[in-house]
Design a protein around this nucleic acid. Structure first.
Length: 604
RNA sequence: GGGGCCGUAGCUCAAUUGGUUUAGAGCGCCGCCCUGUCACGGCGGAGGUUGCGGGUUCGAGUCCCGUCGGCCUCGCCA
């Protein structure tokens, strides 16, 4: 019998003791049916939770008859009376477990095929299948919670920035390709045959132009597109909080960014962060942690022991040092207890993991109490350390009996960083050095402005080509560009880069100098960035800002290690959408209209 | 772009060195029974082109080649 489902009285999860005696009208999906032949129980689910419905054949034969035909995921509306459960029938596992609804009327709104997987929190199903049936996957309470949390985080951001006087301004999705940086997604133009728009990798230049337009506080929650291979924490399209401000220095931007992070963590997690967050120069991060996004929840800091290594007889050490490399190590407290197999034998041994990223091996020593007092080394490369070198290394690392010391040696110091950074992570995880519930926020600052890539023999911008150098490093652009530091900053939390930004170049002459350093001729500069250089001629204000990965933030807030569940409709690693089957071939007529001819027939 | 692992019932998995008939199990599904369950229970049942194509072999889920898809990883991601 038809029920006025538009007159729903409340959500399932809101049916509690306070509603006992009330008549409620509920809408939702059949979570599970328990049919006793006589009495039928249905768990009804909506986005708020689950409540038990009771169908009694004696009092409500018509409704009971319908209930007997219900199956999982049928969509129904019911009207009935809320009743307390008998004391011994209370279900403590259900938020609404103290009550049930005696259903008098039911309306079967639609039936359902048997779902390909249960609509439950704990499922063990391949991601691909979940994506194909994403509409069912998203019915699962844990997913509903994830998307609602995402909504709340975004709402907090908008409220926060609105209150501070920021204006949210949309920027184009169909824009100009900028070959610098990631690979662009291209969109062919029908009006201008043979030319292409690119989807924005970020609204970087538009937000700078908005500063030149006088909107001195801009923000946008915006989709960005990068056609680079995905990872479990990377999707081809993702969402950024994009912020830009005029007349600011680094500290001003950092204060604004810290403010919203504090609010989000407080309001979503109830966690009190205490600004200002610590700041760490890039150099220190690389030396002590091996990465520009240090996880400071555990120590295991890297020590450079090149001086000691040089005076050993170990050819691996002396060899890389002669070649201008470095020898560094980390001390692992209690590391002597790590079994040999885990260090060098097993398939997933530390050594094999390091070899997988290019290390030659994993030299190490275990530390034990020496016969006459001072610690001694054993196993591994212990034999290359005479008593003097041993004492020096013990002093340098603070090693105690029972520890292990792992070395990385390479003729490239960058590689040494890479190896030990990976080792830190791996050891911390395996040895349980990562404390739960800790949120270590920090700013990494003083990034180099440029890096040099030998493969095409030119400089590249570490952040992006619009980042300003530190004022005192400006002269270095002509003398020693690699030494110039940038007015750039990244927020790192627990080893994840969450946001990054910079003060931008707001002087045309400086911008052209940087472009030139990046190997761009004046003609090329005009071709690629003429509009920026033009705008810089009309009273550009000093400005800077940052961008933050919203998806990544939501991932952190929910304790996920996978970005997929922060998106409503994500894609697989190969950028395929199992739900819509995008991308797909298009009609020949569409290609003709765009003046496109395929070099090879489309697959599938 | 490179490397690795994987693909068997609706789902998650099993199937000895290539060899036993009809490729199994749990869950789910279908039917009947059951008035207080909430992991409901009992009895019965259906369900498979082992991703796809080729090859080796007396014989292939198992071995080889190709292909499609998924995941991990290196490169890449200013």
């Amino acid at each position: 019998m038809p029920l006025p489902y538009n007159q729903r009285t409340c959500y399932c999860g809101e049916v509690g003791l306070d509603r006992v005696g009330q008549t409620v009208l509920l809408c939702g999906w059949v979570h599970i049916r328990r049919d006793h032949g006589g009495m039928v129980f249905i768990d009804l689910r909506d986005r708020s939770g689950i409540v038990q419905l009771k169908f009694n054949p004696e009092t409500d034969p018509t409704a009971h008859e319908v209930a007997g035909r219900l199956r999982t995921e049928y969509c129904i509306a019911v009207r009935g009376q809320v009743a307390p459960r008998p004391a011994d029938m209370v279900n403590p596992n259900l938020a609404t477990g103290k009550v049930e609804v005696n259903v008098h009327e039911i309306d079967l709104l639609s039936t359902s095929e048997t779902p390909r997987f249960p609509v439950d929190d704990d499922i063990n199903v391949k991601d691909e299948l979940r994506l194909e049936y994403r509409f069912l996957d998203l019915r699962r309470p844990v997913m509903q919670k994830a998307l609602i949390t995402r909504h709340r985080a975004v709402k907090i951001i908008r409220d926060y920035f609105d209150k501070l006087g920021f204006v949210e301004i949309e920027t184009p999705f169909l824009t100009k390709s900028t070959p610098e940086g990631a690979r662009d997604f291209l969109v062919p133009s029908r009006k201008h045959l043979g030319t292409f728009y690119a989807l924005p990798q970020s609204p970087q230049l538009f937000k700078q132009l908005l500063m030149m337009s006088g909107f001195d506080k801009y923000m946008q929650i915006v989709r960005c597109f990068r056609d680079e291979d995905s990872r479990k924490d990377r999707q081809p399209e993702f969402t950024q909080l994009d912020v830009e401000m005029s007349f600011v220095q680094i500290d001003d931007v950092i204060r604004v960014a810290e403010g919203y992070l504090v609010r989000v963590w407080k309001e979503i997690l109830g966690v009190d962060l205490t600004p200002p967050f610590p700041r760490m120069p890039y150099q220190q991060a690389m030396l002590e942690y091996g990465v520009d996004r240090p996880d400071t929840r555990y120590d295991l800091r890297i020590k450079d022991v090149s001086d000691i290594a040089r005076r050993t007889e170990f050819k691996v050490f002396t060899g890389v040092l002669d070649a201008g490399g470095a020898v560094r190590c980390i001390r692992v407290p209690g590391g002597a207890a790590i079994p040999q197999s885990e260090i060098e034998k097993a398939d997933d041994s530390l050594q094999n993991i390091l070899r997988g990223i290019g290390a030659g091996g994993l030299p190490y020593v275990k530390v034990e109490a020496g016969p006459s007092g001072p610690p001694a080394f054993k196993t591994g490369v212990a034999k290359f350390f005479n008593p003097e070198r041993t004492a020096e290394l013990v002093a340098a690392t603070g090693a105690q009996p029972g520890d292990a010391i792992f070395f990385a040696a390479d003729k490239s110091a960058d590689n040494v960083c890479k190896f030990l950074a990976r080792l830190r992570e791996e050891v911390a995880r395996r040895r349980g050095f990562i404390p739960a519930g800790m949120w270590n926020f920090l700013w990494v600052i003083d990034f180099p402005l440029l890096e040099y890539r030998a493969e095409d023999a030119r400089y590249y911008a570490v952040h992006h080509p619009f980042t300003a150098p530190l004022d005192e490093d400006l002269p270095l652009l002509d003398t020693d560009p690699l030494k110039a530091r940038a007015k750039a900053y990244d927020v790192v939390v627990n080893g994840t880069e969450l946001a990054g930004g910079s003060i931008r170049i707001h002087r045309g002459d400086v911008q052209q100098r940087v472009f030139k350093l990046l190997g761009m001729s004046p003609e090329e500069q005009q071709l690629k960035f003429g509009f920026l250089l033009k705008a810089l001629q009309y009273g550009p204000p000093p400005h800077g800002g940052f961008a933050m990965g919203v998806d990544r933030m939501v991932m952190l807030l929910q304790g996920l290690d996978n970005l997929l569940d922060t998106f409503s409709f994500p894609k697989t690693q190969e950028f395929f959408c199992p739900l819509t089957e995008a991308p797909s071939p298009v009609a020949q007529a569409q290609l003709d209209e765009l003046g496109l001819k395929l070099a090879a027939p489309a697959k599938k």
